[in-house]
Design a protein around this nucleic acid. Structure first.
Length: 561
RNA sequence: UGGGGGAUCGUCUAGCGGUAGGACUACGGACUCUGACUCCGUCAACCCAGGUUCGAAUCCUGGUCCCCCAGCCA
């Protein structure tokens, strides 16, 4: 982590910790945890939680565990565990302990027997549908299960037989005996354990026929790990009463407290694991790490630097009010990071041939170009210049559309970046009137010097035709066309997918780019930031992903007519 | 007509009884061998109504609007 990264701004959770510390709680220790379920890939919403939890541990000299909340074997897998570890590390954080809730299955089971003995839990034979009926509604109290008053002995016997695999999946559950009339539905005798006979768990195999539920597992795992501040998102606020009930009704080794913060919502994207899974499964994107995905794997492949994500997370802050963060906020962080760190290069995305008629045939000059306009330490490189070049089609028009146009026109002059000033003498067209080639002349006195007696305002980039390397360029854009996909209830969120979120073109890049390392990030001058695709790029066939465009003031001016 | 939360510039936030501040965006301008970067400047907010107070975004009362909860998912 770089030093210049400002310490995270304070927030209500840090204030709570400050207060706890001032009061001498927890022996002055701060312990957090990041508890993903390994049933999908991490996304930007998780990044917010990761930065919060690991950031607090770092700033308070505390600890932060990575804990896999793996209580639902049917939806989880080792693939996700591996991906999650990779993502946390990539974001720049290291966990103190790597844990699995399944590490605690035996202890969790013992706590359950403790609850049963105390008459605080019972085995219920109601099926799922009956349980729903007995639960009542938001406005009506539920009613007690007919199995609620079983003796501790009978419950113990039944529960042990559940564990032993004597009963089929779904036939019985262990429930906490709390209050079926509680206005908080979570307290209406919640399920603690369900039977999943024969389910293969990625960590415990077939050792267990019963699996604990989230609320129970999470609270007690926190207590077992000595977590002091258990941070989760707002939708769990209602669960806090249950959380407290568990840690208070069992002989737990510590007393953690839960605090809730608002989850991240980001414009033009979806951040729900369910929807992201559907995007992958339904083929709207190619994979979990498709550069259009808001997953950590996706944005990594897209070229977003981890420090930009951390910066973003500190800028959006942590509160209890839910909002929708503008995509511009994220984009600003990415550009700011990349501007400082990405070496510059020249690449022509939509090539238009230029022949410099007064430049000697066969001659090649090695132009020296700075790798960064402000950071000398990034050094220079050499770019071959020759008689035939490519420039971008967008950098030439026969007649300037207005007085603000600075690029090349027929009869006009423009500077070739890091090289000479040229004048366009002729635009060669094909039978259909398309411009296929420009015939230009160069001014030999303009290398590293301004021309005499006239001002050339425009600067455009170029690549030598014979030296340039063809490359696949993947232009990524937002995945959705609407600010808040999924917000309209009467419309399927898939309807708002952007059909042009990926446009693949064939460009020509300067030769120095041919052997760029996988994942390497560059600024293609005047175009944007690009990175070498980690999966598909090869030396013979470079593939570049557009991370983000440069800010484009000209597009705004042009757009206004 | 249940319970739990939340409302401050367009957006994300700071504020904790004493001049409503920052970042992003937008809009001007300067600079420029990247229409980038950088720099300078401008616009812009306390959900509403009462009350307490010398003084209220902050405390009190009453409203309004928004979000979450009825999995043997997390």
């Amino acid at each position: 982590m770089s030093n210049q990264e400002a310490a995270a701004a304070s927030n209500f959770i840090r204030q709570i910790i400050d207060r706890d510390l001032a009061e001498g709680k927890n022996d002055g220790k701060v312990a957090t945890r990041f508890p993903p379920e390994p049933n999908g890939y991490l996304h930007l919403g998780h990044a917010k939680s990761i930065c919060l939890n690991f950031g607090i541990a770092r700033d308070y000299n505390g600890t932060c565990n990575l804990r896999f909340d793996d209580t639902n074997p049917e939806k989880e897998s080792q693939e996700y565990i591996d991906a999650i570890k990779t993502d946390v590390l990539w974001l720049g954080y290291e966990w103190d302990r790597l844990c699995h809730a399944s590490d605690y299955f035996e202890q969790l089971y013992a706590f359950a027997e403790e609850l049963i003995r105390a008459g605080k839990a019972y085995v219920c034979d109601l099926n799922a549908e009956q349980m729903r009926e007995y639960r009542g509604t938001l406005t009506e109290p539920g009613k007690n299960s007919p199995y609620r008053e079983r003796s501790a002995e009978e419950n113990l016997d039944l529960f042990r037989r559940m564990r032993a695999g004597e009963f089929d999946s779904g036939t019985r559950v262990l429930r906490a005996k709390i209050d079926m009339a509680a206005p908080n539905i979570n307290l209406r005798d919640p399920t603690l354990y369900r039977i999943r006979k024969g389910a293969a768990h990625h960590q415990t195999g077939e050792a267990w026929a019963i699996y604990p539920m989230y609320d129970y597992t999470h609270a007690l795992s926190d207590a077992l790990e000595g977590i002091t501040h258990s941070l989760c998102t707002l939708e769990f606020e209602d669960h806090r009463a249950l959380y407290d009930w568990f840690v208070e009704n069992v002989d737990a080794p510590s007393r953690p407290y839960q605090y809730e913060f608002a989850r991240l919502n980001l414009e033009y994207t979806v951040l729900s694991k369910r929807k992201l899974t559907e995007l992958v499964n339904e083929g709207h994107v190619k994979s979990w790490d498709d550069p259009r995905m808001p997953t950590i794997a996706g944005i990594r492949r897209r070229g977003f630097p981890p420090e930009a994500i951390r910066d973003f997370c500190t800028r959006i802050g942590v509160t209890k009010s839910d909002g929708l963060v503008e995509i511009a906020m994220l984009e600003n962080c990415v550009r700011e990071s990349l501007d400082a760190t990405a070496p510059r290069a020249m690449a022509v995305l939509r090539p238009l041939k230029v022949v410099i008629t007064n430049y000697p045939e066969g001659q090649v000059e090695e132009m020296t170009a700075a790798n960064h306009p402000k950071d000398q330490s990034m050094g220079t490189r050499t770019v071959p210049f020759s008689r035939e070049l490519y420039i971008d089609q967008g950098d030439f028009v026969e007649v300037a559309p207005n007085k603000k146009w600075k690029r090349l026109t027929l009869g006009g002059e423009v500077r070739l970046r890091n090289a000479y000033v040229i004048r366009c003498d002729e635009a060669v067209k094909d039978a259909d009137g398309n411009i296929v080639e420009l015939r230009c002349s160069y001014d030999p006195d303009t290398l590293g010097a301004n021309p005499e007696g006239r001002k050339v305002k425009g600067v455009i980039h170029w690549v030598s035709a014979s030296h340039g390397v063809p490359a696949e360029i993947r232009l990524y854009d937002r995945l959705f066309n609407v600010e808040n996909p999924g917000a309209a209830k009467d419309r399927d969120w898939r309807q708002d997918l952007n059909p042009e979120s990926l446009v693949v073109i064939e460009g020509v890049v300067e030769p120095s780019l041919a052997q760029a390392a996988a994942g390497a990030r560059f600024q293609f001058e005047r175009e944007g930031y690009f990175c070498v695709d980690r999966k598909d790029s090869t030396t013979g066939r470079p593939v570049f992903n557009r991370t983000i465009t440069l800010r484009d003031t000209w597009a705004k001016i042009a757009g206004k007519g």
